[in-house]
C-alpha cells in the first residue's frame, strides 16, 4: 500500500509501506522514514489524532508539528 503523508506547512511524501522494514508498519515507522520524531508531531487521520504506535491502515495521513511551550 502506498501512503500519502501531508506534513502541514512543509510538503507531501509518498511512502510505499512494502519498502519499510517492519512487517506491520506503524505511524511511528512512517514518521521515522521522513525523519520526524513522535515527540515533535501529531499524526491525524480524517482530522483526528491517532496513536503513533498504531498500525497504518489508511492511505492518507496528516502530520502536524506540535505547538507548545511555557
Amino acid at each position: 500500500m502506498r501512503v500519502t503523508v501531508d506534513v502541514t506547512g512543509e510538503g507531501v511524501h509518498e511512502i510505499d509501506l512494502e519498502r519499510l522494514e517492519s512487517a506491520s508498519p506503524t505511524y511511528a515507522d512512517l514518521l521515522a522514514r521522513i525523519e520526524l520524531s513522535p515527540h515533535e508531531v501529531s499524526v491525524l487521520v480524517d482530522g483526528r489524532p491517532v496513536p503513533e504506535d498504531a498500525p497504518v491502515e489508511v492511505e492518507q495521513i496528516t502530520v502536524l508539528r506540535l505547538i507548545k511551550g511555557g
Binding site: T8, L44, T62, G69, G70
Partner: peptide, 20 residues
C-alpha cells in the same frame, strides 16, 4: 489546552488543523 495554563500553553491538533 495546557494542563497548567498559567505556566504553559499548548494548541491541540484538531483546532490547530482547523485553524490552518
Amino acid at each position: 489546552a495546557a494542563d497548567d495554563p498559567e505556566r504553559r500553553y499548548r494548541i491541540d491538533p484538531e483546532p490547530l488543523l482547523e485553524t490552518l
